[in-house]
């Protein structure tokens, strides 16, 4: 039985919908249950940022996560397929009308994506003071906690409503299927078969 870690929320629902299209059965977590067994698969319902850890440590054979989560740390996993769901951009946001100033000795950045932010500003030769937050990132520049934010943007509505706008796109992200590297050795046939079937339903075949 392949074990698949899914991130709580919309990406899990959309992924389970793909499984429903392939295997026909109803794939849905009941009430508050965190484990679902259906059609020979075991799904784990975990926090978004924890999905790669479950896979890296071998608690799950496969996982689905956004590239933003996977890029935040170099997880040793096997990248299999872009599922084309959960699309978003990782952007630098500032108060409307402001721009990144490379001549500033240091820029204060509020984000939950510490490494992505640090790597981006390092690539611009800008010294960044990273302020790690876990939510409501848009608030930080409004009250002077930071000069800018690095955050995920889907529609941009939250940013606009808080008087912020994107000034740079760091990367585009979508949900990817990935595997534990050892599972990809010992259970390669099953994993590649599932990957190919998912590819067919998302129209990539």
């Amino acid at each position: 039985m392949l074990t698949i870690a899914l991130p709580k929320g919309r990406i899990a629902d959309q992924t389970l919908d793909l499984f429903k299209q392939i295997f026909g059965s109803a794939f849905a977590f009941e009430n508050r249950k965190l484990i679902l067994e259906e059609a020979g698969f075991r799904f784990l319902y975990v926090k978004n940022q924890d999905v790669p850890t479950y896979v890296e440590r071998g608690a799950a054979d496969l996982g689905v996560s956004g590239l933003d989560v996977l890029s935040e740390r170099d997880y040793p996993v096997s990248y299999l397929l872009d599922l084309g769901i959960g699309k978003c951009d990782i952007i630098v946001g500032m108060k409307k009308g402001q721009q990144l100033d490379p001549n500033k000795p240091q820029i204060k950045v509020a984000t939950k994506l510490e490494n992505i932010a640090r790597n981006f500003f390092a690539s611009k030769a800008m010294d960044a003071d990273i302020v790690k937050l876990n939510g409501s990132i848009e608030l930080a520049p409004l009250i002077g906690l930071s000069d800018c934010i690095v955050d995920i943007m889907e529609t941009g509505t939250t940013m606009r409503e808080n008087g912020l706008e994107p000034v740079a796109t760091i990367m585009s992200s979508s949900a990817h299927l990935f595997a534990n590297q050892n599972s990809f050795v010992t259970r390669k046939k099953e994993i590649l078969d599932l990957k190919n079937r998912l590819k067919e339903v998302i129209g990539g075949a």
Binding site: P76, S78, Y79, L81, D82, H176, F184, K188, K189, L192
Partner: peptide, 23 residues
Amino acid sequence: TDHNIEALTAADIPWLNALINVT
């Protein structure tokens, strides 16, 4: 090195795709 099967598959080389499947 990164085990990026997505990138290897994208190269679209038949014998390479066959090697990906070998066990």
